[in-house]
Design a binder for these strands. Structure first.
Lengths: 356, 356
DNA sequence: CCGAACGAAGACAACGTTGTCAAAAAGGGA
DNA sequence: TCCCTTTTTGACAACGTTGTCTTCGTTCGG
């Protein structure tokens, strides 16, 4: 990676576009030689001496290759497009971070485009079109679609022109590869943690039972219980709105429904916001966490989980990893690997804090 | 904005790069004519009929202009570069959102690059270099630097080659224009709100007193008090670590220091995380919010402020607006407006919720 | 001293546009 | 019919690269 070590000098010389010819002239060599050195091709035969002369000239002039021209001539841009509603509804920003970092490592550039909120209206239940179109105009070599929450989406037609990978969502038409969190394993891990702490009567504060997250997490919870020879008592599962208030209400229901000795000793909240509400319900009743009631969350929303008191033990959604994996997968596809509709599941690690 | 309305048909025809010539051939006109229509130049004289023929051909072939080639030929890319640590440390994501949306409106593309964490080490106290270099290789027309928290930064040398605007930070060398929150006005608004609610004895939970945010907000608080003929009692200002724990401890100090009747009746927390801790301290003492103690925060961290119980009244940092304004300012600069080192202050609006 | 082998030069055609210009075709009015 | 517009064309040179090929010096080994 050419990086001018003497920016002061360079900045002085540089005015409007130093080109390869300028470098060649300054180094007293041919353009061809410069091109060879800069893209250090293997079949080239360049003496060490001229190589150095050329690099010096690059530094001296502050030459900076024109990425656009290079893309045009070489027919490859080294760009990936990332279409996401995350820009609009920041929650899973870490997907962007993970993707960005991985792309950076691979010497590729990520063009991030906001998926329209057109989402909300119309039949276009999927991610948006204009953004995709714009990205294709930039001749991106592949596309990534990232959603804020795990669900099925419809991807615009034109996305099929280049390799495409979905992150934190999956293709409702079942044609494209995707990277999604392993909700089920996450749910299992959470409940296993509670079992390990000696809890056997566990209340569950559920999300909207139809979304993939709820389905998977609950399934995992059941599996964990089954592993300990237990069953999930349907009475102990209460669905609520996915907010702190929703969690508060659900927790109140669970806590108030039973006499003290039959009350669950632990709550599995299917997201951290609801856990936040549950905290209030518990504290309000003069109970302590985790002494009287242990609480485990899901999502690891830093601002909540790490700042609640006591800090919330929770299962993290592997946003960053999914982002990175998305880029890696895309890289494999653009390198020629055949496109399949695989769903890659990514582990949701348990984060131990102090609420269990 | 040309947008294929019949993507199915287009996708079928399209294989590897439909070019302008293809469109011309299909429409039975010259390339020149196509170019004229597509960039609808004013000095062109094209009959309505051929214009339609050409547009039809564009749709039929699914032609998509090659942005790189266009940039190369026209010497303008319509790209801005945004260098930011926000990707790495998401907190002020809304800056990206604001900038992105504004750029989209202006038909410009935002290339987002992560500023290295090199920040942490070395003498490079500013934002990073490699990212800037990469962006300039893409021939961005202007640069934006965005920081996660309000402070002075050093921008790399090469940033001076194109118009540059700083967002949520300012140039430590005093040469570049910047967009920053009006912390002082924000502090004033917060305290005025408390005064209006009848509080005159107000405790302040302060941040690290050296950072611009603390300086500005405190100054504003003093102004507000002065406006009511009051003074800020230095004893009531306690600095703490900018976390929930820090806020908890600071609040404990303030609350326990005085007998009940001299105790402040309101707390101005200089950020929401500390307010979150203060909530705990208050509740722990059996006091109610806002009944016994009113609390006002700063930052409007959605996940905290909107989910605390009672919901936190706070002053919002205008991230989104700063992002948008940054792009607008940059647009003005690239359009030829002279570069000055102005700091544009953006208002911090008060968000009324239920804690006052 | 000859022929390899190597290093480098130079030419040229892409890539897909934008621009500019002169010139040709089509149409209209007198 | 002739002239004058209004459209439309074709040609060509940019833009800054990549990539391929031929040619031309060197230098070195034998």
């Amino acid at each position: 990676m050419a990086k001018p070590t003497t920016p002061q000098k360079a900045a002085a010389v540089r005015q409007r576009g130093v080109t390869m010819s300028d470098v060649a002239r300054h180094a007293g060599v041919s353009r061809t030689a410069v091109s060879f050195v800069l893209s250090n091709r293997e079949n080239a035969s360049i003496s060490e001496e001229t190589r150095i002369r050329i690099n010096d000239a690059v530094q001296a002039l502050g030459y900076r290759p024109n990425a656009g021209a290079r893309a045009l001539a070489s027919q490859r841009s080294d760009w990936y497009g990332l279409v996401t509603e995350i820009v609009t509804a920041p929650f899973a920003v870490d997907i962007i971070k993970g993707a960005q970092d991985q792309a950076w490592l691979d010497h590729r550039f990520l063009l991030i485009a906001p998926s329209d909120q057109a989402d909300a209206v119309g039949p276009n239940q999927g991610l948006e079109d204009a953004a995709t179109e714009k990205l294709l105009e930039q001749r991106v070599e592949g596309l990534l679609y990232a959603a804020t929450y795990h669900r099925g989406v419809h991807v615009p037609e034109s996305a099929h022109e280049v390799p495409t990978v979905l992150i934190n969502c999956f293709d409702a038409d079942g044609k494209l590869p995707s990277i999604v969190p392993d909700e089920r394993a996450g749910g299992r891990v959470a409940v296993e943690r509670l079992l390990r702490a000696g809890h056997s009567r566990i209340g569950v504060i559920n999300l909207d039972p139809h979304i993939p997250a709820a389905v998977g997490r609950l399934k995992g919870a059941r599996e964990a219980l089954a592993g300990a020879g237990l069953e999930l008592d349907p009475e102990l599962v209460v669905s609520g709105h996915a907010t702190a208030d929703g969690g508060y209400e659900a927790a109140c229901q669970i806590l108030d429904r039973y006499p003290k000795d039959q009350r669950p000793t632990a709550l599995f909240c299917l997201n951290d916001r609801m856990a936040m509400g549950a905290y209030d319900a518990i504290k309000e009743r003069g109970l302590t966490i985790p002494g009287d009631i242990a609480v485990i969350g899901f999502d690891n929303q830093e601002l909540i989980a790490a700042y609640l008191r006591p800090k919330l033990t929770t299962v993290a959604l592997p946003f960053e990893k999914m982002g990175a994996l998305g880029v890696q997968t895309l890289a494999a596809l653009t390198a020629g690997q055949p496109i399949t509709a695989d769903q890659q599941l990514v582990d949701c690690p348990l984060l131990e804090r102090s609420s269990v």
